[in-house]
Design a binder for these strands. Structure first.
Lengths: 242, 242
DNA sequence: CGTGTCCTTGAAGCGCATCAATGTTGGTGG
DNA sequence: CCACCAACATTGATGCGCTTCAAGGACACG
């Protein structure tokens, strides 16, 4: 039973921009179905030219690159509302893979509808470009973290980012939000070893700043965490949703 | 004396896609002038909401982030044909700064014309999105380099990237192309110290793979360089030009 | 010529990776 | 119900790739 765009639960969250009734109708027509995938399932593979694009409706996942030597770079964590498959939709080939971490529900769009979107709904095309520019912005920040921050700074930065996103999505209750990833995922996102990631998380826990275990992240002192990371805690800008 | 889009020297390079006569006319209307900046001049600053967007017509520059602790992450080198100011144009605020390294000539566009582009020229809007997705792709690769490659692999990767781009732009003559950056710039791009970058470049020079000095990059053995980097040397896809 | 910028080289030390082993939990089958 | 196993978290020990510190060389420029 597919979710009607009209009643999409995501659009009510403060993180997302409003849509006009006409835009909602268009998205409903653009949406060809819904897909539920299990934890660990691949959603898109690097190099693939998928005919389908997605928006994460429920659940979380990761985007990652695999190098020839077998090492893995996690590019970002996928949260509800994230658009998946931009590169396939626009350039015809994914530059990274996407995999479900939890069970996920995905809105499915037809890649061939993209061009129609540009032709007949320029405001939606603009939103799509906004998302691409936003991803570029985020990857620039991530690159700065991996390149210039120490391990403890990088981990603090990542936890702040994740927490702000979780808060904007209404996932935080009493300073706790679900974060169903492995320490290895975070290590691969920051270019650190699993061992050092583990020890650094322990430091943050000992300092009573943030504790992440059993798939739950608890942030006790967001400002102190942001101070370590030398980043800010500004409210995230409202983003469009596809 | 501004360059007419009709005679734009960039479009003739193999790297760039063709434009229809109508598209050329539109771009000419969109273009409000030309700007020449000196080496070291700032073009856009992080956080700025510039009313102007640019395409690099001649010369080279760098995009970079500055962190609170004063360290700098170079996100990419700017080559002729690169679009500058995507984030300001789409999201209203730059996520990084852009600075000229050599003297540069920039085509200037009016930010307020962007919306008109989406409304009346969907194929140009698509091209803009293509560029954004392409940047995202590149930053993902860069992140993988900084996060997962050793110093010599990362430097080899960067030199291969730069060389492929230079070749597609017709800048390579006898295996040599201009690369007017400092070693510090490359170090900041890869999250390495200047000293180690210098020593690693010396290794590549000693092995007769690539030599970079006096603003010129000579690549003697592209394949061997790519082997070290564990990357490929595929021809770059033709990109749109704004 | 003095000063600034960039490149180069040597030496010392640390933040991190790697290796190794053990603990914990949940699932599975006999 | 317990033995077993797989996946993940944890902790200690060792060492290396890198950073940092320091000094000097090669230009270019006023």
């Amino acid at each position: 039973m597919a979710q009607k765009c009209e009643n999409c639960p995501l659009r009510q969250k403060p993180l997302f921009q409003d849509l006009s009734p006409d835009e909602v109708r268009f998205m409903q027509k653009f949406k060809v179905g819904e897909l539920v995938v299990d934890p660990g399932a691949p959603i898109l593979m690097e190099g693939s030219n998928s005919p389908q694009l997605f928006t994460a409706l429920r659940g979380m996942g990761i985007r990652y690159n695999t190098l020839q030597n077998g090492r893995r770079q996690v590019l970002s964590f996928v949260f509800p509302g994230d658009f998946i498959g931009m590169q396939a939709g626009i350039m015809g080939e994914m530059g990274h893979s996407v995999e479900a971490t939890t069970q996920m529900t995905l809105c499915v769009f037809d890649r061939s509808g993209i061009w129609n979107l540009f032709k007949s709904h320029p405001e939606r095309a603009f939103d799509l470009t906004w998302l691409a520019a936003s991803e570029e912005h985020f990857l620039g920040e991530a690159l700065s973290s991996v390149g210039q921050r120490s391990a403890i700074q990088a981990i603090a930065w990542a936890l702040v980012r994740v927490f702000l996103r979780g808060r904007a999505l209404g996932l935080v209750r009493n300073g706790v939000m679900p974060l169903p990833f492995r320490q290895q995922d975070l290590a691969d996102a920051l270019g650190l070893s699993l061992v050092h990631t583990n020890k650094t998380l322990a430091v943050l826990r000992d300092r009573q700043l943030a504790a992440w275990s059993d798939g739950e992240l608890q942030v006790n002192n967001l400002e102190a965490l942001a101070d370590i990371a030398e980043t800010d805690t500004e409210k995230l800008p409202a983003r469009p949703i596809l």
